[in-house]
Simulated scan of single mutants.
Amino acid sequence: MKKHKPTIAAIANEANVSPATVSRVINHRNLVNESTIQQVEDAMLRLGIAVNEKKKINNEKKVILFSRETGNTTFYDQICKGILKSTQANGYHLIVNYDSINRGNIGDFIMLLKRANVSGLILSSFLSEDLLDALNAVVPIVQCCEFNENSSIPYVSIDDYNASRQATRYLITSGRNKIAFINGPQNQHYAKERLRGFLDTIYEDGISIPSSWIAHVPSIDYNLAYTIICQILNSDIRPNAFFAVSDILAAAAINACNRFHLRVPEDVMVMGFDNVDICTMIRPSITTVSQPKFQLGYTASEILIDLLHNSNT
């Protein structure tokens, strides 16, 4: 009978450490203390793996693919950095895909996963349950930031609803009672939850606003948002605050206010979301809700790698 070579998971079990630690010993010894290195190498020897065979295990280095949205580039760059930190520490290669996944190209995307020998997938876009199931039949998946709550596939995200409530409450306690809401694509989970948090909060305070003050931008696009916000400001009744679900949209609101000679924040307050670099590049700087972008990406990768290791045990 052919004897199977022990897996990383088997080495981890023998050494009483995590599979990630074994991977670090093999690929990034500088990240591990000497006692742990010795513990892992002793376990390898007990399993019949010569320490000089580490190179062979290293050749089994696998690939994780991150499928990211094309809009809000700075935000997803930080997500990607978190994923990269985790994949490098655990001995995985990272591939980044910029194409949106939909029913029209799902077959081509699955072919890409197979040809690139992808071991696991991190998704940052909302997909229907059937598309998620089709992908999950090929590779393990973790959803990051955007997710389908009706799917059993694990996800990492923030509480968009409560974050939106806190931001709206800040505007109200600052004396603003005419607040316009600049939202993203309506099919996105974050857009639905942030709008719900906004509406629940203003209703609690008895604040009513014109329906035209709730604007849905089809994508996180500065120019589209700028045009929409100018239309809102070019009316007899103007808002005294804007709550935008992205800092990119908030920047458009500030510049639109400048066009109409409105002072920010004296005449119109502007609240953004994400805390990306543009917040400090524009004047005045954007008051925003900070997302733990790097940590979201890092955690999503760690969960996926744990799934991959457990599937090999």
Rank of each mutant, 00 (worst) to 15 (best):
M1F: 08
K2S: 13
I8H: 01
A9F: 10
N13I: 02
E14N: 05
N16S: 12
N16T: 03
V17S: 02
A20E: 03
T21N: 04
N27I: 02
H28E: 05
L31R: 12
N33Q: 08
Q38L: 11
E41N: 03
I49H: 03
K55L: 05
K55Q: 13
K56E: 13
L65F: 02
T70W: 03
T74W: 02
Q78F: 08
I79N: 04
I83N: 03
A89S: 13
Y92E: 00
V96Q: 05
G104M: 12
I106W: 09
D108E: 15
M111Q: 14
M111D: 14
A116R: 14
N117G: 11
L123E: 07
L123H: 06
S124M: 07
F126W: 12
E129N: 12
L131E: 08
L132F: 02
A134K: 14
V142F: 08
C144K: 08
C145Y: 13
E146K: 09
E146Q: 15
N148F: 06
S151K: 01
I158W: 04
D160P: 02
Y161C: 00
A163T: 02
A167W: 05
T168L: 09
Y170K: 13
Y170M: 11
I172H: 09
I172P: 09
R176D: 01
R176G: 02
K178W: 07
N183F: 10
P185D: 07
P185R: 06
Q186N: 06
N187V: 12
Q188W: 12
H189L: 14
H189A: 11
Y190G: 11
K192E: 10
Y203I: 10
Y203T: 14
D205P: 01
D205G: 06
G206C: 04
I207P: 08
I207H: 04
I207F: 06
A215Y: 08
P218L: 11
I220A: 03
A225H: 09
Y226F: 15
C230A: 09
R238P: 05
R238T: 12
A241L: 10
I248M: 11
A253E: 05
A253W: 09
P265L: 08
E266C: 09
E266Y: 12
G272S: 08
V276M: 06
V276A: 07
V276G: 04
D277C: 00
M281C: 11
S285H: 10
I286P: 03
T288S: 15
P292K: 01
F294K: 01
F294E: 11
G297T: 09
G297R: 07
S301A: 15
E302K: 15
I303Q: 13
I303R: 13
H309Y: 14
S311K: 14
N312K: 15
